[in-house]
Write a protein that binds this DNA or RNA. Sequence first.
RNA 1: CGGGCUGUAGUAUACCGGUAGUACGCAUGCAUGGGGUGCAUGUAGACCGGGUUCGAUUCCCGGCAGCCCGACCA
Length: 407
Amino acid sequence: MKQSELFTKTLREAPKDEEAINAKLLIRSGFIFKEMAGVYSFLPLGLRVLNKIENIIREEMNKIGGTEMRTSVLQNKNVWEKSNRWNDAVVDAWFKTKLKTGADIGLSFTNEEAYSNILKQYVSSYKDLPIYPYDFKNIFRNEARSKSGILRGREFYWKALYSFSRDEAEHEKFYEKAKAAYRNIFKRAGIGHLTYMTFASGGSFSKFSHEFQTITPAGEDTIYLDESSKIAVNKEVYTDEVIAELKLKKNDMIEKRAIEVGNVFSLGTKFSAPFDLRYRNEKGEEKDVIMGSYGIGVSRLMGTIVEVYHDERGIVWPESVAPYRFHLIELKSGMGKDLYRRLRAKSNEVLYDDREISAGEKFADADLIGIPYRLVVSEKTGGKIEVKKRNAKGSKLVSYATISKLL
RNA sequence: CGGGCUGUAGUAUACCGGUAGUACGCAUGCAUGGGGUGCAUGUAGACCGGGUUCGAUUCCCGGCAGCCCGACCA
């Protein structure tokens, strides 16, 4: 894309009402726009990043048998009454509103009931299971206090997968596969080395759930990490008993701040029971469906990546999620036109700074936006192209052939 | 939800009970052309409502909005 056609502009200074690094940088660089506290719109550059992350997650979910669908945002009260989660005393995060008929409806704050209700219609035999539907959607939570930019919003974008299995053994098998898929996702998103599987409270059907916690000072959660085994324990379940059970040693555990970027949870029959979600096995016996949930905050993951990857000049996107792979900068009007045309013919991964502004301003913007490869053409570069990686100090002059290999 | 703080151009800020100033941005022109370049001219502002006062952006009250700390985060 030509930068002259991008309506967003960079800001020299962050708005005074933002404290979080992710929000400051993403707003200054024109990736997001703040609508209100805890609510952000994703601008063209921001949407490209969100889409890249989404595609990584989608690929990994499909690999383990996930089938993508889309549940509605408007939710029927009757469905949620079955699990008693319409009740304000149980769930106070709902955004509720009314139809013109006067009927109460809610905006999705999670998906268990919606999926259970849908699958009730389609699941009745052991032959129908297991199934692993998932969706990406905007989720609404009426947080008492939103904070930390896109790390904890009132409206956010997430992926949720639910597993529907025939028995505990089948459930466990998938649960392990899902954990492995999650590790791949965070690795591919560039934060694998900082993201630890963390034992957290499990509710009534399993002792633990598993969170994926990314170590950063911006984190809201406190975890205790054993670096040798790469296992962490959330503060909420960090007791002597649990430490012993997990065969950890208290002296090895280091307290860290972390962001929960994903979690996997065994639900047992918590939702299948109230929805009468059962099936007949080979012997004609009626059995409960065993469920699990697997969530990732996609927009939160984007914010986490910024918290991890930035420097004093701006964002430093990992290649896998960067809005574009190349930032082509011409220092004299029209000089980059041919190169842009050639690259563009092969790839959509080029942002071309064709604006008529000073070199310094272009470089400053490029650093702020954080695209991995900066390509400069000018009178100095002759027929060659100067390549500089965003996180590198030096640059080098290369030919077009070298660039095209990077595509 | 409890506590604290704050609302001034698009952004960041200053001053003031008596015509609101600066920087960036934006527009125009000239110069410049490898790290937010220089000069000139122009553009644009007191969250909303009420009160006190001769006069309120400034003081008071209410509302709305934002940030921070705590609680919460299924």
